[in-house]
């Protein structure tokens, strides 16, 4: 028998839950206008859809390709479609979208940096932000999500605050807004969109060689912890990488691999890790079997110019300007050579 207490509780619990849902809806709305609408990923992915953009060469990759190459210095037939912190799963989603959307495409430039297959990178399995951009078949091919995972992603694409990582972002942004409201200095975006739809970042003016020893030590330590972990090669991520080559070949797109510039300190950590594990050499051997149209290795290109770096493995604005000229010159040679 249902007691009066039960009815009273059920009624109040329902009203209370509705109140919380209203609060949640308000927060979701705020999240959409405050964060989603201003999100670099969404803005840039949308911009890429523009039919007037018809590149022959598309550059994919993470922060290395994003910040080391200044898009403004490239001819119109090149398009820098890289985005920081993304991994091979997202590169492939972008590559597939490019192949589908841009008939002009002939070449894709991809990063070959060894850490791309590290467990830290492999952990990024969040694809909700691509649901509006990539066909669901592509997402299935790359992420192999279960029905439940797909359902969760769909839900969080509609109700973004259901996702803990979105709540983290919301918390951070709200914190900064509150800080600003009380007279605090506005904290600019760490990464922002500059002219020509190119991404810029707060670290681009830093000169690595002028940093104090302790800061450098911390930076190296961070990188080592993030990138040189065991198992060094995540099998699933590497499969995605290999499948990308088959896909590119099937669509008659040539792939050029690039090793981006790194500091002496970074290279030292890399070779120490290789001595201990042999992982780098092993990965290098695997690379030899890839159907690469060309490989450009710039790891040591600035060994005598450490002032071009802003951190362990990113160039500052000055270095990026010089590097862009170098890579463009090399790419033009390769592309010219293969043209009939």
């Amino acid at each position: 028998m249902i007691s009066q207490d039960f009815v009273k509780f059920a009624a109040r619990a329902s009203i209370f839950s509705l109140g919380f849902l209203a609060l949640f809806a308000l927060a979701s709305l705020h999240f959409h206008y405050r964060i989603v609408a201003r999100d670099n990923v969404f803005i840039l992915l949308n911009a890429f859809r523009n039919e007037s953009i018809q590149p022959r060469v598309v550059i994919l990759g993470d922060s290395h390709a994003t910040f080391d190459i200044l898009s403004a210095k490239f001819p119109r037939e090149y398009y820098n479609f890289a985005y920081p912190s993304e991994n091979w799963r997202k590169f492939v989603l972008r590559a597939r979208a490019t192949i589908n959307l841009k008939d002009s495409l002939e070449y894709i430039i991809v990063p070959l940096d060894y850490y791309q297959f590290s467990p830290t990178r492999a952990r990024h399995v969040f694809f909700t932000d691509y649901l509006f951009f990539s066909p669901i078949e592509d997402i299935r091919d790359v992420y192999h999500p279960s029905l439940l995972e797909l359902f969760k992603a769909k839900v969080s694409s509609v109700l973004p605050l259901v996702s803990p990582s979105n709540r983290n972002t919301y918390r951070r942004v709200l914190g900064e807004d509150i800080y600003k409201f009380f007279g605090g200095k506005e904290k600019g975006k760490m990464i922002y969109i500059g002219e020509h739809n190119e991404l810029r970042w707060e670290g681009e003016s830093v000169v690595w060689s002028e940093l104090p020893g302790e800061k450098k030590r911390f930076a190296i330590f961070d990188r080592e912890k993030e990138q040189f972990l065991k198992p060094f090669i995540d099998g699933d991520l590497y499969n995605v990488f290999e499948e990308f080559f088959s896909f590119a070949q099937a669509h008659d797109v040539k792939v050029i691999g690039v090793f981006y510039p790194t500091t002496l300190e970074y290279n030292e950590v890399l070779s120490r890790f290789d001595k201990e594990t042999g992982n780098i050499t092993a990965l290098g051997e695997k690379y030899k079997n890839l159907p690469l149209h060309a490989t450009l290795d710039y790891r040591n290109v600035f060994d005598d110019h450490q002032e071009y770096f802003s951190d362990t493995d990113h160039l500052n604005r000055n270095g990026a300007g010089i590097f862009t000229e170098i890579i463009l010159r090399d790419l033009e040679k390769i592309i010219e050579k293969t043209e009939p």
């Binding site: 609060l23 709540r167 919301y170």
Partner: peptide, 19 residues
């Protein structure tokens, strides 16, 4: 009481770490 409960619930939901 309800305001406090909302604050606690919203606090746990929005400020919590769920990893």
């Amino acid at each position: 009481r309800w305001s406090m409960a909302y604050a606690l619930l919203a606090g746990a939901y929005f400020l919590g770490v769920y990893d």
